[in-house]
Simulated scan of single mutants.
Amino acid sequence: VRPVIKRRDTQTIHCPAAPAGVIDGSRADVSFIAGLITDKFCYHQPLYRQHQRLGDNGIRVSRPWLTQLTHAALALLEPVFTAQLDSIRASRIKAMDETPIKAGRAGPGKMKGGYFWPVYGERDEICFAYHEGRSGKHIAQTLGTDPPPEGAVLLTDGYAAYERYAQKCGLTRAQCWAHSRRKFFEAQSIEPERATQALEMIGQLYAVEQHIREAQLIGEARRAYRLAQAKPMVDRFFDWVDAQFESHGLLPSSPLTTALAYVRERRAALEVYLADPEVPIDTNHLERALRVVPMGRRNWLFCWTEVGAKYVGIAQSLIATCRLHDIDPYAYLVDVLQRVGQHPAADVAQLTPRLWKQHFAANPLRSDLHPRSK
């Protein structure tokens, strides 16, 4: 609300300029933009539902305008996303996976299939890089091809493309025990007795990890405990796997045969965590963080364009990382959307959620519409 005045001496009409917004020329306040993004990507409310809710409350805007606002705001945040991805690339321990997404039209009534490639760094940061397929080249596009830090480890599932990337870049590849366990779980209906044996042995490894968490063991203490307690269990497990093959009682098509072959082929990668205390036993921490994509996908189903999918990845990367660091995503977005345009480009990493919490969370920028305390 701005005053309009008429000068008596010149009879001219004057009005102060509108306050500068985070998006040039837009009538949307930063609080509206941050709320739009938070509702869509944090609480999985598609824009058409938000449009209905706005209309029900007497706010008449067009749906294309809401889409334009979302894209424009996330374009402002792309350098922050890039800085966070650089931080993850510099991590010694990284976990990576891929999850499908429909993005872009392939024809009338058909959508193209693409993939998010979530990667999780050792500083509790996650980025969802979008690529158009599941080819191994997208691993290099996401993680880069620069020499990795000394002793770097890439923790993944059993997809062979990760092994090729690790060999090419000189990484140690670790594999996830949860994915191995899943193979035996799926075999229970066909081979209940032996599949249950495998699950019980793997469960003992998880009991060791639970004790480590409860005792808060770190560093060399964690490594020594794993070698003393878990390594003998792992050796017995693989001895049991070899014995199952030697018994000649398995059909090649049996799910249990598939599970046994899966773990035996990947033994070296499954044992990496025993000697490296910083490597988790599985990728469950990544699976929990990437859950926002399947949850959102059930609501908004697909992205109209590949560019839209890229912006979904940017939003989910920053919001999911906010959750990992106990940051309110709305407060973060209100601050960073105002700050990013004036912040030195060389220091853009300070606006990633992890560093923002250190530098700005104590006194965040608010909207001009934010209620002032008396």
Rank of each mutant, 00 (worst) to 15 (best):
T12H: 14
P19H: 10
G25V: 09
R27C: 10
D29N: 08
S31W: 12
L47H: 11
L47Y: 13
L47R: 09
Q50T: 13
Q52L: 11
N57D: 15
V61Y: 06
P64M: 03
L66Y: 07
T67F: 05
T67P: 04
Q68W: 08
L69N: 03
T70Q: 14
E78F: 00
P79N: 13
F81M: 05
A83H: 09
D86Y: 05
S87I: 03
S87P: 10
D97N: 04
T99C: 07
K102A: 07
A103M: 01
A103Y: 01
R105Y: 12
G109H: 08
K110V: 01
G114K: 02
D124E: 11
D124N: 06
S135Y: 14
L143H: 07
G151D: 12
V153K: 05
G158K: 04
C169G: 11
A174S: 10
F185I: 08
F185H: 12
E186Q: 10
E186N: 08
A187H: 02
E191L: 12
E193T: 12
A198D: 02
I202E: 03
I202H: 02
G203P: 09
Y206I: 09
A207N: 06
Q210K: 10
L217N: 07
I218K: 15
A221R: 13
R222H: 11
Y225E: 15
Y225F: 15
R226Y: 09
A230S: 15
D235C: 05
D242H: 08
D242F: 06
L256H: 07
T257S: 14
R264N: 11
R266I: 08
A268N: 14
A275Q: 11
E278T: 05
I281P: 03
D282L: 05
D282C: 08
N284D: 09
V293T: 06
G296T: 01
R298C: 05
W300Y: 15
T305Y: 11
V312G: 04
I314W: 03
Q316F: 06
L318N: 01
I319M: 00
Q338K: 06
Q338M: 10
R339Y: 00
V340L: 06
V340D: 03
G341L: 02
G341W: 00
G341D: 09
H343N: 05
A345F: 07
R354W: 00
K357D: 11
R366H: 15
R366F: 11
D368W: 09
R372P: 06
